[in-house]
Each structure stands twice: as structure tokens, then as C-alpha cells.
Write a protein that binds this DNA or RNA. Structure first.
Lengths: 192, 192
DNA sequence: GTCTATATTACGATAGAC
DNA sequence: GTCTATCGTAATATAGAC
């Protein structure tokens, strides 16, 4: 509400993404956005072509962050299990750093072209991580009693659930959360 | 599409919940439901008062399933870590048994009274499980290097993620999936 | 860049016939 | 129990003034 200094597409996006996450993309009207941004509905169309462009910008930013991880040295060099731990930790970190954008990405349904594109790109990312699990299993570093496909899904389930509850504060707990994810995923809850 | 034998509220609900999960609740219009059910929009209003009643019926069914677990003997008797494992497995099982209903519950936003009620009830369930983790930690059965609050959230993240990918087939894999969740949550991915 | 006013379509829900 | 027709509202988006 009530930000009157002029907007850029990116500053408007920040407002829009927050509202999208609160109400859901489909549950958010241009009227809701206009109220939250403190400008009229029609002014929004000066900055972006429409509601779907806001969604496209948001999920693009999230996907860029995620694919960036796979290009980092820690994701490319070394034993598969070590690369997998690295990608797990970095995915958790990127998810928290780009929290609202990734949250929106993870909740996309596939009702529009933009949403279907986002889903397809997200599947690509997941498959590249699945490949890491497969290699780690082949190298004998994963428990043999859990299916690799299933493990991939549960791993992502745990990481992605961060968007459901993590809220940044001063004295940010991002490294601790990322470490806890890695620890629980690879060592489990129970004392050994 | 094209089911012409007359509906009951429950058979109509099954159709509606499927569409809600495909398109999102807010992304689903009464027109979408009418097409999927093979009857006209106005006929839907003969069976239910409106769209929100369908949502209420669906999330009620999901919540009944979840709270039922906490009343079972395995969730009430024995050491806390054993009860926690039991609840973890049973939650995964109920989630798969009532898949579309729980899926809808987990995606509710809070835009209407019905949605806010569902969110509040769900928080109650989560808090009862969190209590189990707290007890298990006090009894020394949980790793000391992960915060209990954080562990609760990651545990639910893993369990709840089942709705994102599990699809029932003939020769259902429900027991295997539930076992994998328990194994990964309590023992982790890495060989020990 | 922002506004008011408005075009146009889609939505949830109801009326009343069969 | 189902239908067609329609009401009233809210949605996305545009036109044109300032």
C-alpha cells in the first residue's frame, strides 16, 4: 500500500509477487495489485503488459537462480554424493534468497502457456539433480533400500517445503536452515 | 466429462476435487466443473450450495483422515520416537488413500472463511505432531544437532510432498512409499 | 506516469420450465 | 434432476485526458 515514488517493472514485480503468494496467482486480481502498489489499475499497464507478464518475470528469476547452481564448480567437480550435497545446500540457499519468486514457481498449475513453460523448465532442473542421485547410487554412496526416483522426490519435497514456512528476519538463519536440510536428508533424524 | 447417471453430493465432489487440483481452486470456474461433470452449471447448484461448499466438504474429509490417525493406538501408546514413526507412516498412508482431498487441503490459501478454518485445523494437527518430536528429543532419541521446530517442518515437507507426484496405480505402491518416507526421515539417504 | 471512465468478457448464482 | 435463459458483479484490459 501507498508507495508513490514511481515504479519500475522490477519494483512493481516485488509487490505483485508478494500478493500472488498471499492470495494465489489466480486469486489475485489487478484490483488487488493496484491496492497493494498504491497506484491505479491502469497505471500497472504502463509498466507491464498484464498480469501474466508479472508471472513470467517472477518465475524466470526463480529459474535463473536454480539453473545457476548447476553451473557452479561445486555442482560439477568431485564425487557424485559430494556434488549432490552441494546442490542440496545451494538449492535451499537460493530458495531462501529468492524466496517469493521460487514460492510462486513451485505453486504454478499449468493453466496458461507461461505456467506450462515454467513447469517444463522446473522438470529439467529436477531431472538434472535426479541424475546426480543416480550416479551417487551407482558409486555405492546411497542407501540401497530406497529407490533413487523416490529419494529424489522426497529430497525435493524436503527442500521445497522451505517456502511454506521460512520467513527472513534480521540475523538471517539461512546457513543454519540449509545445513539442517542437508543433515536431515543425508543422515536422518534418528541417533545412530 | 459425460457422466449422465445422476449425481450425489459425494460423487460430484470427486469430480470437482479432481478439477480443483488440476487448475487450482481459484482457477476453476463453475463452467469448468459443469464441463467435467457433464451436467449444466445450474444442475450443480441442485446438489451443493456453491463452489465453496465443495471446498469445505473436500478439506473436511482430508482433516477427518488426518485427525483419525492421532486417535489410533499406535499414535498414543509407547515411546515417543515409536509413536512419531507410526504417525509419520500413517500420515503418508492417509495422504495417499485420500490423495485428492489432502492435496486440496495442502494448497489452500486463506482467501475465504472456509480456507482460513482449514488452515487453522491443519495447524492443530501439525502442532500435535510437533509435540511428539519434542518428547522424542527429550527422551534422547533424536539427533541433537537439528532444531526440533525445524525438524518438524522438514518432516512434514517430505511427507506432504507426496501429493506433488504420487499417482495411484494397479498394484498400489502405498506401503513401499510410506516405508521409504519413514526410512529417509529417520535414517537419512547416506550409507552408515 | 498517473488518473478516470469505460469496453468487454467471464464469473457465481438464481428463476422457472420440463 | 436437469435444462435454458439471465441477473448482477467482478474480472482484464484499453482510451484518452492531464
Amino acid at each position: 500500500m501507498a508507495r508513490r515514488d514511481t515504479y519500475t517493472p522490477d519494483t512493481l514485480l516485488a509487490v505483485a509477487v508478494r500478493v500472488f503468494n498471499e492470495r494465489g496467482y489466480d486469486g489475485t486480481s489487478m484490483e488487488h495489485l493496484s491496492k497493494a502498489a498504491g497506484i491505479s489499475k491502469s497505471s500497472i499497464y504502463h509498466h507491464v503488459r498484464g498480469k501474466e507478464e508479472l508471472l513470467r518475470r517472477a518465475v524466470s528469476r526463480a529459474l535463473d537462480g536454480l539453473f545457476g547452481i548447476l553451473a557452479e564448480p561445486g555442482a560439477r567437480d568431485g564425487r557424485a554424493i559430494e556434488r549432490l550435497e552441494y546442490v542440496t545446500r545451494r538449492t535451499a540457499e537460493v530458495l531462501m534468497a529468492e524466496l517469493p519468486y521460487v514460492t510462486l514457481l513451485l505453486r504454478v498449475h499449468g493453466n496458461t502457456d507461461t505456467e506450462r513453460w515454467a513447469l517444463a523448465r522446473r522438470r529439467e532442473f529436477d531431472q538434472q539433480v535426479a541424475e546426480l542421485l543416480k550416479q551417487a547410487a551407482a558409486e555405492g554412496d546411497l542407501r540401497a533400500d530406497i529407490d533413487v526416483r523416490l529419494a529424489t522426490r522426497l529430497l525435493f519435497g524436503m527442500i521445497n517445503s522451505i517456502v511454506e514456512w521460512y520467513r527472513p528476519e534480521r540475523g538471517s538463519a539461512e546457513p543454519e536452515v540449509a545445513a539442517a536440510v542437508v543433515r536431515m536428508a543425508f543422515a536422518g533424524l534418528r541417533v545412530t
